[in-house]
């Protein structure tokens, strides 16, 4: 580990530093309230669980491809991956920002409660599965079963969506600019009103995407016809 004085950035080389040591040091900042706030991680080489469980206002840049569960459970921190990410990117994120400059594998943003997740490439299957309040912006396309059982939050996709989009969806809003291969059970297209245009504009701006028109998106959401929406079934829970 060396301190990069000019940028006051703590540089950690995963070719020489064990991953657990990196994550422990990142956690220690949250625990003690002391330590560097800007971090750069080099040579991740597809390692799993890089920068997981952060709980402080840290700025972490990762140079290269990461494996599974990168930035999982993120709270407050800003994590940027200059590469691709494996399965479960920003899974169960609570707040903060996670940006991937390449593509993400399946289940990106799964169950995430808050924060902003931006994928500049494609996200694979099950993007935003069971999302619970996170906002996800994907510059490319998403795979099948994206936003499955999505509860709340927004999924903005500048490209296409795969089969069974929004299956069994609750209150989440899905904004898709390209083709939708197929809608899942109880997911329908809905009217784009001014409030929705404003929401898409805001999310695109926060994701740093300025060459895409909010007016090109279509909105999808729940028809609220499934069993769980029937008041007669309330006693079953």
């Amino acid at each position: 580990m060396v301190a990069d004085a000019a940028l006051a950035t703590e540089v950690v080389d995963l070719a020489v530093t064990p991953l657990r040591e990196l994550n422990q040091r990142l956690h220690d900042v949250a625990r003690t309230g002391a330590g560097p706030t800007r971090w750069r991680v080099v040579n991740p080489r597809g390692a799993h669980a890089v920068a997981c469980g952060l709980d402080a206002e840290l700025d972490v840049e990762i140079d290269g491809h990461v494996g599974y569960y990168c930035a999982g459970m993120n709270k407050h921190a800003s994590v940027r991956v200059r590469g691709n990410a494996g399965t479960g990117l920003a899974e169960n994120m609570m707040s903060g920002t996670v940006v991937v400059e390449g593509s993400a594998s399946q289940s990106a943003g799964a169950t995430a409660h808050g924060g902003l997740l931006v994928v500049h490439g494609d996200a694979a299957a099950r993007c935003g599965i069971s999302m619970k309040g996170v906002n996800i912006v994907v510059r490319g396309s998403v795979g099948h079963l994206s936003a499955f059982m999505a509860q709340t939050g927004c999924l903005v996709v500048c490209g296409d969506a795969g089969e069974a989009l929004g299956d069994s969806i609750y209150e989440a809003r899905l904004y898709i600019r390209g083709e939708v291969a197929g809608l899942g059970a109880d997911c329908i297209e809905k009217e784009m009103r001014e409030e929705h245009l404003a929401q898409v504009r805001d999310l695109l701006a926060r994701a740093g995407i300025d060459d895409v028109e909010a007016g090109d998106f279509r909105r999808y959401g729940s028809a609220r016809q499934l069993y769980t929406f029937k008041v007669d079934n309330a006693g079953a829970y």
Binding site: G46, H48, H65, G67, N84, A125, G143
Partner: peptide, 22 residues
């Protein structure tokens, strides 16, 4: 199955990389 098995190859950092479609 996972990228870290490819990361050990020469030139992996600059490889064109993608996830095969189902």
């Amino acid at each position: 199955s996972e990228y870290h098995a490819i990361a050990v190859l020469p030139g992996a950092d600059d490889a064109r990389m993608w996830e095969p479609e189902p």
